[in-house]
Amino acid sequence: MLSFFHRLQLRFHTENKIVAYLLYAIGEIVLLVIGILLALQINNWNSRRLDQEEARKSYQNIKRQLLEDRIELGKVKDLNNYFAASYVNANRMIANKDVSKADSLALMIMGLSQYSDFYRSGNIYEILVNSGEIKLLKNIAVTSGLQKLEMTYTHLNKLEDIHWEIILNELSPEVRGAINYATLEIVKPEKLYSVEIRNFLIESLFLTQAKDSVYKKAQLEINQIIDQINSELKSQ
């Protein structure tokens, strides 16, 4: 009888040890899992923090480039307006056939061999795509705005290329036959009042008006993107 109770006691003791061991093992596993989850959470948090820092740097860099572009756009827009006024004045002189102002007309026309030409700081959208930084920018309004601005820049550059072509192909041949560049002497005054020169002035005036419209469009788009970037930076 005593032997039976002793065996029973040993059995309970053994089972208790097994249960205790199982509980201990389960506790260790739970702690291990919790540790892994915490490590993953911390790692994810650090990754998000680093991504946010990189995104912030990208937004600030984009803003800096856009501000540079906006300043340059303001300069070329003013220059474009100056040329537009010169086209109007030169066209008026030719229309009035005021030969007494031939010298002034000659100098004005020679100056019109120049034109407003926008040089941007860089292709922001393409750089973001090629570098992979665009994935960090969560504000869709910024990325889509940059893509739209790139199309506006492309349109503007095409207009500027057209302007240069008509200067090269239409104005230069006429001016070369009318003015001696070395002495600025007017060799053939009648060529300054020709229909070819006048047609060039009218074509160029239309181009300056088209360019002015695109300059304004680009400035507006830049302002909208900068507003979005400022809001994004404040929210971080």
Rank of each mutant, 00 (worst) to 15 (best):
Y125C: 02
L112K: 09
S121C: 04
N223P: 00
L31G: 03
L8E: 09
S47D: 11
I197W: 02
L149E: 02
N61L: 12
G177K: 13
R49N: 13
Y82F: 11
I186E: 01
I225G: 00
L73E: 01
A178H: 04
A210W: 01
Y21H: 09
Q52A: 13
T143P: 03
D103I: 12
E15L: 15
L233A: 13
A182G: 08
V76P: 02
N180Q: 12
N80A: 15
S3M: 11
I34R: 04
H163I: 00
A20I: 03
I202L: 15
K211H: 00
L10K: 14
S172T: 08
F206D: 14
E15T: 02
I140W: 01
S131W: 04
S58E: 15
L38P: 00
G35R: 06
Q228V: 12
M93E: 04
S116E: 05
R120A: 08
N230Y: 02
Y181R: 07
I226L: 04
P189G: 05
S113K: 15
N130M: 10
Q209Y: 09
Q114Y: 09
S100D: 07
L171K: 10
K63H: 09
I229E: 01
N230Q: 11
K234L: 14
M110C: 10
I42F: 14
V129R: 15
A95V: 10
W45I: 02
M151Q: 12
Y119V: 10
Y21C: 06
D69W: 08
L22T: 03
D212C: 01
E174F: 04
L8H: 05
Y125S: 04
Y82N: 09
I202Q: 15
R92V: 01
L159P: 01
R120K: 11
Q60F: 04
N61K: 13
I124G: 04
F206T: 09
Q147S: 15
Q52N: 15
A39R: 10
I229N: 00
D98A: 05
Q224C: 00
V76R: 11
I167W: 03
W164C: 04
Y153K: 11
M151G: 03
Q236I: 09
K17G: 03
I134T: 08
L205A: 10
K158C: 01
I197K: 11
T143I: 14
G132L: 05
I186F: 03
V129C: 13
Y82E: 06
Q224H: 06
A39N: 11
I162D: 13
I166E: 03
V88G: 00
H6I: 06
Y115H: 10
K75D: 05
L205G: 00
E165S: 09
L201A: 07
N230W: 02
L32H: 05
V175N: 00
G111R: 08
E170T: 05
D212V: 01
V76W: 08
I134H: 06
E165A: 12
L79W: 10
I197N: 04
A39V: 09
L112N: 14
A95S: 13
L37E: 07
E174Q: 15
K135V: 07
T208Y: 01
S194N: 02
Q147E: 13
Q209S: 13
I94C: 07
I29W: 03
A141M: 12
Y193R: 08
L31T: 08
I134G: 05
D117C: 03
V99T: 11
R70Q: 14
S3R: 13
K191H: 05
K216T: 12
Q228S: 15
